[in-house]
Design a protein around this nucleic acid. Structure first.
Length: 414
DNA sequence: AATCCACAGGAAGCCCGGGAAC
DNA sequence: GTTCCCGGGCTTCCTGTGGATT
């Protein structure tokens, strides 16, 4: 059987392409702002906003690569440092990381051992030092040479949410104390409200320039997908309408290119698993379902344990019998499960609310029905496969082994 | 037409943890 | 450190309800 992928890595989020279709305008603007150091000026600080999968990070990386390439011939050295604040999310970690990066650059530029000959430490430990000591170390390493440091803080909202805007205040204020070097901050966020978490001084200095990345529309997504499909799939394996359908799905999800590419890759992997040589729209549809399921499993995984138990009751009842499941059944099953695992038993009123919440999340379907003389209740069906639900509930083992749990016989109705 | 089931879901209030104010 | 306040999870108590049954 022939393979269908040339190289699937080009469809993964980690890959940054050479060409970024439909981001010409943003890249041009970015370049215009960041090119200032080549003329010896300090570029403004920059704030970039856009939803996930709109090409923010890719564009910035693209421009900084260009910038570093042409900076060799410029009067002043330009160093671009990229930090993802999801990982590096405290003042200390940011400063320590920056200090280490610039110490290393010094060492490389001069000679091994040069750094310690200046009285610098080999490196800053990732914990233990007073923060101002770390700051001083970074400051001196940076100011050793005339250079411009462009510090890119991706997902900057995470940083501010976790540790406040103190780091940003310090970084934006540095320029007035630096003798030879200059810094410029590029903040990237997908939370538009982010600016309101900042103090007024930081806000105004960070947003000297602002750039917005609008979501892609279906046509633009199609271009992007076509470009990547050409790199990653063998010619001719993609059936009619496959790319259009991927683009249409992602356009509905706020124009997220990352999701579009994921979908295109997953559709291919499904075709591969089927052992066929063509990817069809049916594979895309299944791929879409798979992604939705995966999203659902993730939601289940993060549910509080009481909700998990309620869901588990529904799962066990679903596996056990084919007749309609109603609130009363779920509650008595839940009651027994609570006893088995030693969790507090909530009231039926509360469990009713939990069932509604699971319904809202789309994990189950709960429809109010009236059985006349036999009352009014909710009829409940599971929206994800019992096996997946079980697996997701079982993770982290809050109830010991779920396999050991079972409903007593009297709960099975004829 | 009246009854009655098996809940739905609103209202009020308790309890507790976390953050702000003192 | 203490006090105050707020919001979320939860309970208690309650009224409401669609339609099979009487």
């Amino acid at each position: 059987m022939r393979p269908i992928f040339k190289n699937r890595e080009y469809l993964r989020p980690s890959y940054t392409p050479e060409e970024l279709p439909h981001r010409g305008e943003q890249i041009h603007q970015l370049a215009r702002i960041l090119v200032a150091p080549l003329r010896g000026e300090t570029p403004s600080n920059l704030f970039i906003y856009g939803k996930t999968g709109t090409g923010k990070t890719a564009s910035v990386k693209h421009v900084s690569k260009e910038l570093e390439r042409v900076a060799d011939r410029a009067p002043r050295r330009v160093e671009v440092v990229y930090l993802n604040c999801e990982v590096v999310n405290t003042q200390y970690r940011i400063l320590a990381t920056l200090a280490n990066i610039f110490l290393e650059k010094l060492e490389k530029r001069y000679s091994a051992g040069y750094v310690s000959s200046l009285g610098f430490p080999e490196s800053v430990p990732m914990t233990g030092w007073p923060t101002d000591e770390v700051y001083r170390c970074f400051f001196r390493a940076l100011d050793h040479d005339p250079q411009l440091a462009v510090i890119v803080l991706d997902e900057i909202d995470r940083l501010v949410l976790k540790s406040g805007d103190k780091v940003l205040y310090n970084l934006t204020r540095m320029n007035s104390d630096l003798m030879k070097a200059k810094v410029s901050i590029v903040g990237i966020s997908n939370d538009l409200n982010f600016m309101s978490y900042l103090g007024p001084r930081v806000r105004s200095s960070l947003s000297e320039e602002e750039l917005v990345f609008p979501p892609y529309n279906a046509l633009q997504l199609k271009d992007i997908l076509e470009q990547r499909a050409g790199m990653s799939y063998i010619d001719g394996v993609l059936g009619n309408g496959v790319i259009s359908l991927c683009a249409a799905h992602a356009a509905r999800e706020h124009g997220d290119a990352r999701r579009a590419l994921d979908l295109l890759r997953i559709a291919g992997e499904l075709a591969e698993r089927d052992g066929v040589e063509t990817v069809t729209v049916a594979h895309v549809r299944r791929g879409f379902e798979k992604m939705e399921q995966d999203k659902m499993v993730e939601v289940v995984r993060t549910l509080p344990s009481q909700s998990k138990l309620v869901l588990l009751s529904v799962v066990l009842l679903t596996e056990r019998n084919s007749h309609k499941i109603v609130t009363g059944d779920v509650y008595s099953a839940y009651h027994k499960l609570c006893r088995q695992v030693g969790l507090d038993v909530l009231t039926q009123r509360r469990v009713s609310d939990l069932i509604s919440e699971l319904d809202m999340l789309g994990i189950i379907n709960a429809q109010i029905i009236s059985k006349g003389r036999y009352g009014r209740t909710k009829e409940i069906t599971l929206n994800i496969s019992p096996i997946q639900a079980r697996a997701a509930v079982q993770e982290e083992h809050p109830f010991g082994s779920v396999e050991a749990l079972s409903l007593p016989r009297q709960l099975t109705f004829a």
